[in-house]
Design a protein around this nucleic acid. Structure first.
Length: 118
DNA sequence: AGAGTGACTGGCT
DNA sequence: GAGCCAGCCACTC
């Protein structure tokens, strides 16, 4: 991985922006990489959102567990130290998980473009 | 400079 | 829903 995450000179403000959005996700709700990418107008794409999250890895209070892919699958569970960690964190917040997937995902989805839209 | 890789997505089958 | 494919950008070797 990029050890550049140590110094993080100025990857680009989008790192901070991504974290900010993730922190805005209400407890019990989840959002997707694509939704964040769209909201921030990141040409970089959803992939970079995930990359940004990897950099957050244990960062401040970034609830990365609330970010899943467009299918509601916990695609980043393997980055939480233990594959079950992400699920446990979500369940602790009231989000039911079944087979690595958020139950009733579409209803729990929190899209910044929609929720924060003006 | 080119090829490989990835916490993604949308479209089709 | 599950699988395959092509597009996407940043980064590493």
């Amino acid at each position: 991985m990029a050890k550049t995450t140590e110094n993080l000179p100025e990857q680009r403000d989008y790192f901070a922006e991504v974290y900010e959005i993730v922190r805005l996700v209400p407890v019990g709700r989840v959002t997707t990489y694509g939704a964040i990418a769209r909201y921030l107008s990141l040409r970089a794409g959803a992939r970079m959102v995930g990359w940004a999250m990897s950099a957050s890895h244990g960062q401040l209070d970034v609830p990365a567990q609330r970010v899943v892919n467009s299918s509601g699958i916990l695609s980043g569970k393997n980055f939480f130290g233990h594959p079950m960690r992400m699920q446990e964190l979500l369940e602790a917040e009231g989000v039911a998980i079944q087979d690595d997937r958020v139950v009733d995902f579409k209803t729990r989805l929190w899209d910044p473009s929609t929720e924060l839209a003006v």
